[in-house]
C-alpha cells in the first residue's frame, strides 16, 4: 500500500472542545484531496497533526514517518502553505531564494527563478512592499521549486482576487502536480478547486463525514431536476436535500439507483458545493 498519509483513531482535544474525534483515513500517492468543512470543523487541526505542528492521540503515519517525533526529516519530503501571506515581512525576494536554496536539499533554484520570471516580482523587493497576491506568488514559487512528495495547502488563496486565485491553482496543476506528488488542500472556495480534485473529504465537528474519490461520488450522489407533478414520488426516495428553481424541484439523492432516478427527470452530477451544503445542514444551528 503506497499510502502517503495513514491516520488511525486520531483525536485532538483543546481545553473544552474536541477538534478531532477518532479520525481514520488514508490518502494514497498521486491524489489531490480536498479537505472541506465549515469553520471550526477541525480541518486546520487535522493538517497541523499531519505536519507535526500539534500533538494528538492515536496513530498517524506520513510517508512512513511519525510527524510528532520525526518532524525535521518529514519536512524534507513535505511542504506546506498554511494561511495566506505568512512570509516574513522583512525578507527580500533574493534573500528568500538564497535561504531556501541553502536550507532545503530538494529545492531547485532555476525552477523557482523561472516561476518568478512570470511575475512582476523583482529580486530586491521586500515582502512588506508586496500586495497579498504577490506574496502568495512568491510563496508558491518557493514551494513549487521544492520537489516534495506531499504538499499541504491550508486556505492558500483566502482574500485574493479571482485572477490570483485562478492562476494559483492553474500553476499548481500545470507546473507542479504529477503522479508522484500528493496535494491536500482546504478552502472555502469549493467551486474553484472542484475540477482539480481527485478525492473529497468532508469534515464536520471533528469527524470525517464523507471520504470518496470524485468518480465514486458521481456514482453515489445524483442531482435530479423534477417537475412539480413528480415531486411527491421523489420525496419518497428520501432525498438529502431539496431546492426550488424555476418552478421545478431539484433533489439530491445519496445512493439511490440511477435507473430509478431517470424516471423522475434529468440526472446531473451534483456540484461539490451543493453536496457540501446538503451534508452540513444544521451545522451552525
Amino acid at each position: 500500500m503506497n499510502a502517503v498519509v495513514t491516520a488511525k483513531d486520531v483525536s485532538k482535544r483543546y481545553k473544552n472542545t474536541l477538534a478531532l474525534d477518532n479520525v481514520s483515513f488514508q490518502i494514497p500517492a498521486g491524489r489531490i484531496v480536498g479537505l472541506i468543512g465549515p469553520n471550526g470543523a477541525g480541518k486546520t487541526t487535522a493538517l497541523k497533526a499531519v505536519l507535526g505542528l500539534t500533538d494528538f492521540q492515536g496513530q498517524l503515519n506520513v510517508l512512513g514517518l511519525d510527524p510528532r517525533t520525526q518532524r525535521d526529516r518529514l519536512m524534507e519530503e513535505v511542504c506546506f502553505i498554511a494561511d495566506v501571506a505568512v512570509l516574513p515581512r522583512w525578507i527580500r525576494v533574493s534573500e528568500a531564494i538564497d535561504f531556501v536554496a541553502n536550507i532545503h536539499p530538494r529545492f531547485n533554484r532555476a525552477k523557482c527563478e523561472s516561476f518568478l520570471a512570470r511575475t512582476k516580482l523583482t529580486p530586491g523587493q521586500r515582502v512588506r512592499q508586496m500586495s497579498k497576491g504577490m506574496i502568495v506568488q512568491l510563496h508558491l514559487a518557493l514551494v513549487m521549486a521544492i520537489d516534495a512528495k506531499l504538499l499541504v495547502l491550508d486556505e492558500p488563496t483566502l482574500g485574493l482576487d479571482i485572477l490570483y486565485r485562478k492562476q494559483f491553482y492553474q500553476n499548481l496543476l500545470e507546473d507542479y502536480f504529477d503522479e508522484n506528488k500528493t496535494i491536500i488542500v482546504t478552502t472555502h472556495q469549493v467551486e474553484e478547486i472542484e475540477h482539480i480534485l481527485t478525492d473529497l473529504m468532508f469534515i464536520r465537528d471533528g469527524r470525517i463525514v464523507l471520504n470518496t474519490d470524485m468518480d465514486a461520488m458521481g456514482e453515489r450522489f445524483a442531482e435530479v431536476m423534477v417537475s412539480a407533478d413528480m415531486a411527491a414520488t421523489a420525496r419518497q426516495l428520501k432525498p438529502l436535500d431539496e431546492r426550488q428553481v424555476f418552478g421545478k424541484s431539484i433533489f439530491l439523492f445519496d445512493g439511490v439507483d440511477q435507473a430509478q432516478l431517470k424516471a423522475l427527470g434529468e440526472i446531473r452530477r451534483p456540484s461539490v458545493s451543493d453536496l457540501f451544503v446538503a451534508t452540513m445542514k444544521g451545522t451552525y444551528a
Binding site: 505536519l51 519536512m75 524534507e76 511542504c79 516574513p88 536550507i103
Partner: peptide, 17 residues
C-alpha cells in the same frame, strides 16, 4: 515576533531542527 506575525508557519515548513 514570528509567532505574532505568523511567519513561523513559513520557517516551520522548512526542514530545520
Amino acid at each position: 515576533d514570528d509567532r505574532k506575525d505568523k511567519s513561523i508557519l513559513f520557517w516551520q515548513s522548512l526542514p530545520i531542527a
